[in-house]
Design a protein around this nucleic acid. Sequence first.
DNA 1: ATGAAAGCGCTAACAT
DNA 2: ATGTTAGCGCTTTCAT
Lengths: 346, 346
Amino acid sequence: MNSRSNPPRRPLTLRDVSEASGVSEMTVSRVLRNRGDVSDATREKVLTAAKTLGYVPNKIAGALASQRVNLVAVIIPSLSNMVFPEVMGAISDTLDGSGLQPVVGVTNYKPEREEQVLYEMLSWRPSGVIIAGLEQTEAAQAMMVNSGIPIVQIMDVDGRAVDSMVGISHRRAGRKMGQQILKMGYQNIGFMGTKMPLDHRARKRFEGFTEALAKGGVEILDKEFYDGGSALAKGREMTAAMLDRNPDLDFLYYSNDMIGAGGLLYCLEQGIDVPGRVGLAGFNGVELLDGLPRQLATMDACRYEIGQKAAEIIKSRVENSDEEPVSVELTPKISFGDTLKRGLGG
Amino acid sequence: MNSRSNPPRRPLTLRDVSEASGVSEMTVSRVLRNRGDVSDATREKVLTAAKTLGYVPNKIAGALASQRVNLVAVIIPSLSNMVFPEVMGAISDTLDGSGLQPVVGVTNYKPEREEQVLYEMLSWRPSGVIIAGLEQTEAAQAMMVNSGIPIVQIMDVDGRAVDSMVGISHRRAGRKMGQQILKMGYQNIGFMGTKMPLDHRARKRFEGFTEALAKGGVEILDKEFYDGGSALAKGREMTAAMLDRNPDLDFLYYSNDMIGAGGLLYCLEQGIDVPGRVGLAGFNGVELLDGLPRQLATMDACRYEIGQKAAEIIKSRVENSDEEPVSVELTPKISFGDTLKRGLGG
DNA sequence: ATGAAAGCGCTAACAT
DNA sequence: ATGTTAGCGCTTTCAT
């Protein structure tokens, strides 16, 4: 029984509801938005008429008239990175009930694409913007400043924010891991990561890492960057190749947990003693890893907290537009798992 | 040198550009949209003025005036399922260059949430809707019908579409896997899946599966459903528990590849002969699996093709509004991997 | 508690 | 090739 009255060519308007209920458009509008005093009798009439007709308000007209749009633009590089869906989840959760709605835009790590997505989103006059990273193009930064709405740059704090920012210092994170590795006595260190010059956060971690090693008089023995394909498989392949090239390696640092997991699986298969013969560490604290035979050492990127805090900043700025910009630096925690020696090494 | 002229309290309008360039608003509008004939000289003037001022068009006003919105609402249950980001990617790719922009809404598998998200999105008068599944609430279906815009229900074809649909038959997929398993000689079969009564597609696969087994005179020996947590870890735990309860089991069917991978890792660790002693199969063909020590048998859900086709349907319907609704059933392929016997079993 | 009028920033349709 | 006019469907503001 799916047959319904033939769908209207012209979408319904307030006027239709007004006529159907015998109440002025203005009062209909009041009822539908729960604003102003309306008698229970009229409210009832209006609600019934609206529901019967199947009226759906036109937010475009509403937004134009009220100069208010309950949208928050969220601009991220990718949906397949896992990290970002999690941040999104936190933003959604936190915005829920506030009347604000997140809208996602994906840039695929391309600055020009980012610029375009930002432009597109700003043209809908959202109430705020949450955007990943601090490295937008000049033009994009100008747009954000000119927009006059609250902007929160997330994930990273190594740099200057346009307005507010929430994240971790990836440089510091890389350094910390480097220090820890040296402390545990590892000396022959290899690095694997993505071939993405535009993944600034991975780059900063790498810089911090090599810097910490340099301070300890250690240089990276080998490094390799990959591109596309299954991260797990790439981790496995790169690890095999690298250990083959450099049998002396005693530690492998991966720029993300997925390739780290691939490397771990490979080592276990080969019967390599982990972390005795070779230590391993990744980055991110991906929940997925819980199911592996051993826990990969990693560092938590504070994804949920970042999303949450960013959403809170937007909310409070929307309510009180003359609040000051804020910068929040969160501190990622190392988890040693089973692939990084814990005692003083030797 | 990040200091810029103080951001305007009032966003710029066409009128500002018009005044700055000494050209009528209408002509400015023409230039900015590349419509109608405009002399190179004026175009130049306008573009310069717009760029200098940092003008960003107001799509709200534009949409209201033109009665056209270049947005396609995409409504999916989750971003953490991997499957959906992939479908999204296909939709994005396919829409790219068409002038249409996807906008995502996430429902968390909750019908009432889905209804609300749909309402919210329809109130922006998008050009089309792509929505996962065929099981929306009555009210949601009514909204879709009344909207008068193209609707494509995706993923599943076991049921009646409101308008168009693209997907696979999950019931048939489950049946096919069941038949294959019997054919290979497995007889003592266990099932593991998510505890989600609202994941209709998983349910349908399960139904098809048991139906096929029943036809072969076989009944499922054991089943278990999980909830939350790391899928990989859950797969491992459930597999351990189930094999412990039922040492006779010779096949395990998982409702998704993630828990299947967990089970596979467990079996390998335990030195269980796969697929000789125990066969395994999942569902989805997640790229991630490429890095596992063995390839899990699985079935491709045609995610990319689904997204692509759905986007194409929307595109062509937007261009030519009196095209007929279509239903497209894609055929998922079994990949045997290394965990399902290939020869005639015994 | 309800209604009337004006206008949000743009574009369609029609001049010129 | 460019300008003018009249709305799009709501909400704001001001009456009543």
